[in-house]
Simulated scan of single mutants.
Amino acid sequence: MAAATTTKGGKVRVLLGNDATPTVYASPCGFTSKSLTLTKGLEETQVPDCTDPDKVDWIGRDAVSLSMSVSGEGVLASESVETWLDAWESIDSIPAKIEIEFPAKTITWTGNLHVETFSAEAPNGRRVTTSVSLQSDGEMVRVVD
């Protein structure tokens, strides 16, 4: 039996782009954990049995949309707080890359994301923490290098 090839959390990166040409991407400082969720929207249709109309129908499902959501949490770093606030305030989605690096390959999604939520938690006597959630705006193109 061969062991699975895995990666570490620091090899998953959320990079935000600027409006330069070409776009320059950087990973805002502060995340201690990240999460990536890929969602497929489905529509359901009852599919009847043509030879036995009284038979209970099975459900057929058709894919109608794809979506990506990204979230992260960690410390509220001075180096990145304005990057997050600018992205949240923007009426437009922002260019972004999501990378997962393995020893033999890197999977990268590139597209636009909206900063959906930005929150900060400030317990007395402890460091301020933050959590951010982002939602895809259109296609996130996947490349494997």
Rank of each mutant, 00 (worst) to 15 (best):
S69H: 00
D86F: 10
A104G: 07
H114R: 10
S119C: 02
E121Y: 01
R126M: 09
K97V: 06
K105D: 03
V70F: 13
E139M: 11
G125D: 12
N112W: 04
S71L: 06
R127N: 11
E121S: 15
S133G: 02
S93Y: 01
V75A: 11
S133I: 00
S78A: 14
K105C: 03
N124K: 13
A104K: 15
L134M: 15
G138S: 03
A122K: 14
A77C: 13
V70L: 15
L85I: 13
W109S: 04
A120E: 15
L85W: 10
Q135A: 14
D86R: 14
A120L: 12
Q135Y: 01
S71G: 14
I94P: 00
V132W: 03
E139S: 13
S69L: 00
D137P: 00
E101Y: 05
E79W: 05
L76A: 15
I94T: 10
G72T: 09
E79N: 10
I98F: 10
E101V: 11
H114N: 06
S136D: 06
I94F: 04
E139N: 11
T110A: 12
A122M: 15
E79K: 14
E89P: 00
A96Y: 04
V128E: 08
L76C: 14
S131C: 02
L134C: 10
P103W: 08
V70Q: 01
T117C: 04
I107F: 13
V75R: 09
K105H: 10
E82L: 12
I107H: 14
V115N: 07
G72W: 05
T106D: 03
S136K: 01
V132A: 03
W84P: 01
S93R: 01
K97S: 05
D137Q: 10
I107E: 14
T110N: 06
E101G: 03
A122P: 00
W84A: 05
I91L: 12
I94N: 02
A87V: 05
S119T: 15
G74Y: 10
G125W: 07
I100R: 12
K97F: 07
F102Q: 08
G111C: 09
S93H: 02
L76H: 01
T110V: 08
S93E: 01
A77Y: 00
S90R: 15
P123C: 08
I100Y: 03
T106C: 06
D86A: 15
L134I: 03
A87T: 03
R127H: 09
S80V: 02
F102D: 07
N112I: 00
I94E: 01
I91Q: 12
N124G: 13
D137V: 03
A96F: 03
V81G: 04
Q135K: 15
E79D: 13
T129L: 09
D137I: 01
G138F: 02
I100L: 13
A104T: 14
S133Q: 09
A96D: 08
P123A: 08
W84K: 09
S136E: 07
P123N: 08
G138Y: 02
W109E: 00
L85A: 12
T110P: 03
S90H: 09
R127E: 14
W109M: 05
L76I: 00
S131T: 09
T108H: 07
T83H: 04
G111L: 04
L85E: 12
E79Y: 07
S78L: 13
E82A: 12
P103F: 08
E139A: 13
T129P: 02
L85F: 09
G74M: 05
F102S: 02
E79V: 06
E116K: 14
